[in-house]
Amino acid sequence: MKKRVRSIVLTGYGTNCEMETAHACRLAGSDDVDIVHISELLYGDRRLDDYDFLNLPGGFLDGDDLGAAKAGANRIVHAVVKGREERLLEQVLRFVDRGGLILGVCNGFQLMAKLGLLPGFDGCYETQSTTLTFNDSGRFEDRWVYLAVNQNTPCVFTRGLKELYLPVRHGEGKFLPADEAVMERLHRQEQVVMQYSDGNCERAVMSYPENPNGSLDAVAGICDETGRLFGLMPHPEAYLHRVNHPRWTREDLPDEGAGVSLFRNAVAYIRHEL
């Protein structure tokens, strides 16, 4: 029997990619797609318990004023849901425990890293051990980048994908682990899902602008040990149709943008494996 796929796209307090993220979920075949303001969760009008696919889209939560997504993470950790004696974080952890999928893009990835949802070593989702900080250039930049996808990763979102070409649009996207052991473990457990790469999407590169922010080991996205939680700096929801591609007027491209495939994988996983 086919399972109904229910997607939630979280917004509010500075998130700004909710529309195209919801569109991506719809294109991928999600049966329900709700754009939900954080306040609706905080007032108990909606609950994460009613969804399978949580999208944390890009934007500037609270202006990134205390560092990217820092104040946003602080809200999730400490804010109490009205009428229920629980913090929002507890709902998130229950969602993870139940086997739901989380996709964090850009600011959403920053949020996941700062909450500790990623890398989630040993199933612990509350300890921060990686971060995303200021680009080496010291600048916000909008540019498309080539990405090499790890073929051995448990990440369910990238199944069947070898390469991607997507835009980054951030000022704080440089990936750093707390120490070498964290980095080593990320590699060993194949949690490094994608890396900034050369134009053939074969070789991870440290050189600018191919690696747009100076991320250590050119890390562009990581997942948790289960592969169900995935965060990345590039924006898959920004490439849903070939006319989004910067060179669509000069290259032969399929109508559907490559960004949709991440969402298709998520929907397929929920439908058939959850």
């Binding site: 700004n16 930049e141 920004a238 060179r247």
Partner: peptide, 22 residues
């Protein structure tokens, strides 16, 4: 131009920087 987000909201068709090397 690079320091402005010219693609958010997902509707970008012709960007301010175009061509073989963007």
């Amino acid at each position: 131009v690079r320091q402005y987000d010219h693609e958010v909201q997902g509707g970008s068709v012709i960007k301010p920087l175009v061509g073989v090397a963007d």
